[in-house]
């Protein structure tokens, strides 16, 4: 079965991203397909490449990145939600005249249409939020 996951909360503040990660891992282990993981609301903050969690804690962004690499996951960050919160990739930073970018290369920025398309194409959409 094809699943699209929607993650609406940032890392650490809420468990939503952790739950979604464990769900994604379990789904993949059972042979399901993760069609897309879409990050919205404060969920866009999961894509920061600059977070430095304490060494005895999990690294949520790196966990997602590793899972994405292993299973070629399509991890999309909503551009409107990201811009509002200062999350930029290098291209967008250039376009907006900003001197820094912070999106982890495992994620890419795109429009909300990717969420809707993901919801249409997948058999199930599962929302993880607050």
């Amino acid at each position: 079965m094809k699943f699209t996951l929607l993650i609406n909360e940032g890392p650490y503040q809420h468990q939503a991203s952790d739950t979604a990660y464990q769900f994604a891992k379990a789904a993949l282990e059972k042979g399901h397909e993760i069609y897309r993981v879409f990050f919205y609301n404060d969920g866009v903050n999961n894509a920061t490449r600059l977070a430095i969690p304490p060494q005895d804690d999990r690294n949520i962004t790196e966990n997602w990145a590793a899972l994405a690499k292993e299973h070629e996951l399509d991890m999309v960050v909503c551009i409107a939600a990201a811009q509002r919160r200062g999350m930029l990739d290098a291209d967008e930073a250039g376009r907006q005249g900003k001197d820094a970018d912070n999106i982890h290369p495992a994620f890419h920025i795109s429009g909300l249409g990717q969420l809707v398309e993901g919801a249409i194409q997948a058999d199930r959409l599962i929302t993880f939020g607050d």
Binding site: N41, A80, G111, G113, A119, I120
Partner: peptide, 19 residues
């Protein structure tokens, strides 16, 4: 919280997909 505003943005995009 921002949920109402950002949800409305999803609603409008979904309508644009003729759903």
């Amino acid at each position: 919280t921002v949920y109402a505003l950002e949800s409305l943005e999803v609603v409008l995009i979904t309508a644009a997909f003729d759903q």
